[in-house]
Design a binder for these strands. Structure first.
Lengths: 270, 270
DNA sequence: CGATAGTTTGATATCCTTCAAAACCTGTGG
DNA sequence: CCACAGGTTTTGAAGGATATCAAACTATCG
């Protein structure tokens, strides 16, 4: 985190996913191989192939777009550090946020398979991006079974999250939508050790939440107040605190099994 | 279609996607390799590996579930013939349909990567299913670069469709949701040559459409009447006719580029 | 020709949006 | 340390889109 020049204003500096490293082999994990290693066994050679492939790093500022819808995809990107979100803009200017990319999430494996991007990716914080040429991507993916499996699985897990988002937006009311999304983000942030006691750094504002949930920001604000007045949580100053996880889960009818990253068949299937 | 004992009550028998075969090589395409061949070049050997892998066929009836949420995924399935839909059911009994699987679509590549299914798949028509053991799946996928690429790309295209569905349900009104979904299905059905002049066999009823779009069937019915009275289309007796494609597209603000299957980089990336 | 599933209609309730303004933060510069 | 600017959150009042409930109507199939 140091040699990359910091810049990310995380609330409690020094505590991040990189502290989760377990060093299954000799080569220490980066945030990228850490995440991929959870879905497929990666040996030293795999790790160095992956890290080497994305060795070029760029820094981008909060509020800018990493990927712009409609543009040709010439580069492969990976989010090394920072928060981001996928979105589309409609003709009338409305925005729909499709999913969030949290620190430690890899970013855009499937992006490069398409000739041009069908959605944009915006940054919620300053971020560090690993960048590589699309033309070599498939060769990298194919360099070992473990690597292919890791990226394939990772892509599929992303899709599970999007599917649940369809359900959330399609068949839940405002209160459930919001509480359900917060439950999901909470669990995902816990997975990468970003939750400290009952609080996390949370750079998603009410406008964004509304656009993710298919609501107006006015109504989102009022819905949030319901959760606050039920003593479930607080959200202000880019800090989310959850006081009553049980109650929140109950309101949301949240069942984390669709996120079952820990339940991966132990490197099976090969 | 014949040696498989028919059974599918398509409206105009004899015309199906199998007539689209272009026989790029010597081995004629099945509906499965036809579809996969659109996203990655498949030679004779690839085709026979794929077809052989899914050689075991079963028939299932309309209204039954091919895959049930929560169940362990022991088999890999492919939809050879018929219509299906992915869905989830909430605690309160509400259903959200996440996506449709049309004839010629492959079915569930990513399903097997997860230990247990996070959603169900129901059949809208009688169907023919190709079935195989999950444990051999990865070996099959890895038997050639083309095969791996074909399944990976196919998975990703499915995901593009789901992403657009999030936008549809999250940020469009009832009229746009319905017209947009119908536009998408129309284009996808055209791609597999199921549209004859201005009509298609269309086994999705109003209840299903409502559950896909996050609406009640009552409201869906009224919305459909708007499209009818605008002389855009007719929908009855499992036949959808589109009279005014231009107007429908306009109402929907539909832009098919997210379906860009024909725009695949010509077998690039490896 | 009767049973069953799917479609249509009407009346009423509610959730969410819209619009507009005020209040509140947060960082910046004098 | 205060003032100011810009973004974000909060509030109010009123309107509109969609839900709910219940019943009638219409296809379809054995």
């Amino acid at each position: 985190m140091k040699e990359e020049d910091g810049g990310l204003r995380v609330q409690s500096p020094g505590v991040g996913w990189s502290s989760v490293n377990k060093a299954l082999n000799n080569i220490p994990n980066t945030s990228l191989t850490e995440k991929l290693g959870k879905v497929s066994r990666l040996d030293d050679s795999d790790k160095s192939i992956i890290n080497d492939f994305f060795r070029n790093r760029i820094k981008m500022n909060s509020g800018t777009d990493l990927i712009i819808s409609g543009k040709k995809a010439e580069n492969a990107f990976v989010l090394i550090e920072g928060w981001a979100y996928r979105y589309k803009i409609l003709a009338n200017g409305r925005r729909q946020i499709i999913s969030y990319l949290l620190p430690g999430d890899i970013c855009d494996i499937y992006a490069f398979v398409l000739r041009k991007m069908d959605h944009s990716i915006g940054l919620l914080t300053d971020a560090t991006i690993g960048i590589a040429s699309v033309s070599d991507l498939w060769t990298m993916l194919w360099s070992s079974r473990n690597i292919g499996q890791a990226f394939f699985r990772s892509t599929i897990i992303d899709e599970c999250v999007i599917r649940e988002h369809v359900v959330r937006v399609g068949r839940r009311n405002a209160l459930q939508r919001l509480s359900h999304l917060l439950c999901e983000l909470w669990v995902r942030l816990k997975q990468v050790n970003l939750v400290k006691n009952d609080s996390v750094y949370f750079p998603i504002n009410q406008d964004h939440l509304a656009d993710a949930l298919g609501l107006t920001s006015v109504h989102l604000n009022r819905t949030l107040q319901v959760l606050r007045s039920n003593d479930c949580l607080s959200l202000s100053g880019k800090t989310l605190r959850i006081y009553d996880w049980e109650k929140l889960q109950e309101i949301a009818e949240f069942d984390a099994s669709y996120l079952s990253i820990d339940e991966m068949p132990q490197y099976a299937g090969g």
